[in-house]
């Protein structure tokens, strides 16, 4: 089976800025693929090239086995796209927006209602409300509906959950799971690391480069070194103490714990714990932990920067 998206040695620059530096990867049909990276990593540029909106400087890019340069019209018929910013007509109502996008794709709401039903029922009570007056989560749901209305084979979602609260985010991802089960390939970008765990595979992107591609379950294998989780009631002091400790390579806050990565080759975290406890942190809680996506990303980031 041909991949839904295939990218080989894609590069793109804007004046002096290299937005994408010779990246390559494939997204399989029916796969939920996550692009994880901060703002300015080049994610939106990649989306625009894949959706035939911008031309690449070099490289081969194919969507549903069609070339993004030559076959752009055919591609446009078969993909759905949600740009980074909320891009619906704020002065049109929910129903008017949906109807408009259905018509310009040569279809009707009724024809593909099955696909959007689950999402649209939540929007239905606000049918006559202007899109600009919806809450952040609802706007994203409407945008998703509009992107789905013509039953696309590949869905491109550029940061669909940025600025959206955790509850709406979770609902949004549940919808993506369902769409994936319908056989739609989805490429989604997000700055939220916790969402990465919900993808089949993820690519970590920074400054136009892909640092690593893996499934969420195996990405922690990319982490090297020993990681210790610690907490105390005096978090800030603990953080500075750990950062200044010779055994510690880096230390960052992770939720209620601090995660300290030991120096390369050092596995003896118990002696670090003793040491810290002796420095007056009587209530210290410490244990060895496995790296999550965010740990991996941060390690890759600092390596890339060094």
């Amino acid at each position: 089976m041909k991949p839904a998206i295939s990218i080989q040695n894609l590069s793109k620059s804007y004046k002096e800025v290299e937005a994408l530096k010779s990246i390559s990867f494939e997204v399989k049909q029916g796969e939920l693929f996550g692009l994880i990276g901060p703002d300015g990593a080049g994610k939106s540029t990649l989306f625009r090239i894949l959706t035939t909106l911008t031309l690449a400087d070099s490289g081969i890019v194919r969507v549903m086995d069609m070339d993004v340069v030559q076959d752009f019209r055919e591609i446009r018929n078969r993909i759905g796209y949600m740009p980074g910013r909320f891009s619906l007509y704020q002065d049109l109502t929910v129903a008017e927006n949906l109807e408009f996008f259905a018509t310009i794709f040569g279809t009707t709401i009724e024809e593909n209602y099955d696909l959007i039903r689950d999402i649209y029922v939540q929007l239905e009570p606000f049918k006559t409300r202007p899109a600009g007056k919806l809450s952040g989560g609802m706007k994203q749901k409407l945008a998703l509906c509009c992107a789905l209305i013509h039953k696309p084979e590949v869905l491109f979602l550029d940061e669909p959950t940025t600025g959206v609260d955790p509850v709406s985010r979770k609902e949004f991802w549940q919808m993506l799971k369902r769409l994936k089960n319908e056989g739609i390939a989805i490429l989604v970008s997000t700055p939220y690391m916790d969402e990465a765990a919900l993808c089949d595979r993820i690519a970590l992107v920074q400054k136009g480069e892909i640092l690593s591609i893996a499934s969420p379950d195996t990405i922690n294998e990319a982490f090297h070194g020993t990681l210790v989780a610690m907490k105390s009631h005096r978090m800030y002091e603990l953080l500075t103490t750990l950062r200044n400790h010779p055994k510690v390579a880096s230390c960052y806050a992770f939720g209620e714990f601090l995660n300290a990565a030991l120096m390369d080759g050092d596995e003896d975290w118990q002696s670090l714990e003793m040491d810290i406890r002796h420095k007056g942190f009587d209530d210290l809680v410490a244990y060895e932990t496995t790296a999550g996506i965010e740990n991996v990303f941060m390690q890759l980031l600092s390596q890339a920067e060094a």
């Binding site: 990276g37 901060p38 703002d39 990593a41 940061e159 940025t162 600025g163 700055p191 690391m193 920074q206 978090m235 800030y236 953080l239 960052y252 806050a253 965010e294 990303f297 941060m298 980031l301 600092s302």
Partner: peptide, 24 residues
Amino acid sequence: DEPTGGVDPITRRQFWDLIYEAAY
């Protein structure tokens, strides 16, 4: 007001370091 939207995880933590410091 949402000071860390869209920044990378390291920068996000560095930002929180600043917050901790200020609170300290």
